[in-house]
Design a protein around this nucleic acid. Sequence first.
DNA 1: CAAATATGCAACTGAATGGTTGCTTTATTT
DNA 2: AAATAAAGCAACCATTCAGTTGCATATTTG
Lengths: 113, 113
Amino acid sequence: MPNQLNKIFKSIADPTRRDIFHLLIVASTALSITQIANHFDISRQGITKHLKVLHQAGLLEMTTKGRERYCMANAGPLREIHDWVAFYEQFWDDKLNRLNQYLKQKGKQNPGG
Amino acid sequence: MPNQLNKIFKSIADPTRRDIFHLLIVASTALSITQIANHFDISRQGITKHLKVLHQAGLLEMTTKGRERYCMANAGPLREIHDWVAFYEQFWDDKLNRLNQYLKQKGKQNPGG
DNA sequence: CAAATATGCAACTGAATGGTTGCTTTATTT
DNA sequence: AAATAAAGCAACCATTCAGTTGCATATTTG
C-alpha cells in the first residue's frame, strides 16, 4: 500500500500525535502503552486511539511482550511527506513566474495529493 | 505569528486542499474562486471554505478585483513542514540505536510539535 | 435600469474526531 | 489462589469538519 500519504498527513496533523511520535523517537527503549500515557494528561484509552492512528500510518511499530505492548516509532513514512513538500521548494522564494519555473522543471515528478 | 505549524499541518492534511493548492501553484495566473471551483466536483461555497483554511495557514494570498477575488498560492509556509520533517530524517534508515544518534546530534534544534 | 455574474453569509447535516467512562480479559506478582 | 497491573472493547459525548442549500449583496454587462 504505497498510497499512505493521506494517512500520514492526517496522523501528524494532530499535535498530541506529534508529541507521542517525538517521545517515541527520542526514547532510549520501546515504551509500553501505559508508559506513554504517563507522559500525557489524557487517558490511556485516549492514547491507545492515537497509537492506532500512528500505527495505521506506519509511523509506529508494536510488539507484544506478555501483557504489555511495546511501541517504537518508525520515521520512514515521513519520507512521503518530505517528498511531497520537496516538489514545492522551487516555489518558496519566487512567488512570481511560477509557471516559468514549472515549465522549466517539467519532467520532475509531481507528487500530486 | 510564527506558531502556524498546526494550521499548516491541518491545512495540507485534507486532500482537496492539497489539490487546490497544487492547482494554484502550477497555474499560470491567479485564479478566481469560481475558476477554482470549476476544477472540482464540490460547490463554490465548499471551495470558499477550503480557501479560507489555506489562507489562514498563510498558504494562499487573495486580492480583490471588482467583484472577483483572485487567489495565489504561497509555498513559503511549507518550509515549516520541511523543517519539522527534517529533524526526523536522521531516523529514517536506522531504526535501532535511536538514542545514540539522538545524543550524538544533541544541540540540534528540536522542532517539537 | 435590468439581467447576469461573483461572492459572502448563515443555517443546516452527517460523518469523523478526540476524548471520556465502565467493564472484561489476560498476564504477572505475592 | 487472590490481588494487581496492562491492555482491549464498547458505548457514549461534544466538537470539529466537509459539504450542502438558500438567500443577500455587490459588480458587470447589455
